[in-house]
């Protein structure tokens, strides 16, 4: 049972994070909440990527005094490197989006997207 949960908590959990984020993006009216949804999706995808490279009992791929490349199981380093990239880009996009939101709030005095009609007909 624990074993099953462990498996699901990474695969299922990351998918759940993505879906929750997607639901927020589609239904929420508040711009900040939409961005929180996007951020959740980002996190979910990162978790999914990292969990694809997990090895049972594996350790971080760093060579130290007791560990060399043959003596222990390393987890896959490539997803980790990719996710490192992904996180930084996520932060950058989030910051940019928040800057746009600040500007939108200055212009419309609201964060409710149903009232922001500048780009709509």
């Amino acid at each position: 049972m624990i074993d099953f949960l462990e498996k699901w908590s990474f695969f299922g959990g990351s998918v759940l994070l993505i879906l929750i984020g997607l639901y927020g993006v589609i239904t929420r009216k508040n711009l900040i909440k939409i961005f929180i949804g996007l951020s959740l999706m980002d996190t979910g995808i990162n978790v999914l990527l990292v969990s694809l490279g997990y090895v049972e009992g594996g350790i971080a791929p760093i060579i130290t005094s007791t560990i060399n490349n043959n003596s222990y199981n390393f987890v896959d380093p490539i997803p980790q490197a990719l996710v490192l990239t992904s996180i930084v880009i996520g932060v950058a996009v989030l910051a940019l989006g928040l800057g746009v939101i600040i500007k939108i709030y200055e212009k419309y005095n609201t964060l409710d997207i149903s009232e922001i009609r500048g780009l709509r007909w």
């Binding site: 695969f11 969990s51 490279g53 997990y54 090895v55 049972e56 199981n73 390393f74 987890v75 490539i78």
Partner: peptide, 13 residues
């Protein structure tokens, strides 16, 4: 069931 059984040996990693 492949969770935690990443086949590192056969990966580029």
């Amino acid at each position: 069931n492949n969770f935690g059984k990443a086949d590192i040996e056969n990966r580029t990693a």
